[in-house]
Nucleic acid binder design. Sequence first.
DNA 1: ATGGCGCGTCAAACGCGA
Length: 259
Amino acid sequence: MRVATWNINGVKARIESLLTWLAETQPDVACLQEIKSVTEGFPAERIAEAGYQCVVHGQKGFNGVALLSRLPVEDVVTGLPGEPDPGQSRYIEALVTGDTGVCRVGCLYLPNGNPIATEKFAYKLAWMEAFEAYVRGRLALEEPLVFAGDYNVIPTPQDARRPEAWVNDALFQPATRAAYQRLTRLGLTDGIRACNPEPGIYTFWDYQAGAWQKDDGIRIDHLLLSPQAADRLTASGVDRFTRGWEKPSDHVPAWVELQ
DNA sequence: ATGGCGCGTCAAACGCGA
């Protein structure tokens, strides 16, 4: 079972790229963030023609997440239980059944948190705290779990081409990294790093200042796996090639393959 | 040192992202 995540930065602006990517890489489950669409406006029909059913948690103008699956889904959870601001659509989850067993997939869009001297950063940390509490409860189920999405966290200096450029950014603050590390210490495995230990793995390049041309990237999109999912991990990667497409998202997809 | 781009909203700039 292949589970992928992609911050698509506007699903309507990126629908042709999304359909091309689905056809080329054939994920079983695709977690999308920043769809920037209300649920009713989501292009579910064109995606259904490609063989995927959609569960969507939309919002007007900003944020918004969706889960696309070509496998049966049940147990849909819309919104993160205990989240600090339910008006922002940042979480959706479903139980997916594949040939080799079930997997519960959470799709998240963690707040950016900039600028750090404002309530936006406090909101980011509050969201991470609510997420950690929720993850604790989910881990107690002892089942295969994948929490996939745009975490807006640079976990270590190896996850940025120029870490020094991010020291005053919410994505690389000590408090941000500590909160992310608390998640991994609960027993979650970084699915990308587990198979790709080398430096230079990035998932985001800014649109500005030629960041892509200079490979000035950061790794902020992650798939965290419960022990039961990590035991089934056979491969993972980043679909870097989509950043070179016409009208690209500033993020690229990341994915894990589970036995 | 700064800003640089792109999307959505809405019909001109502006909020927001990272």
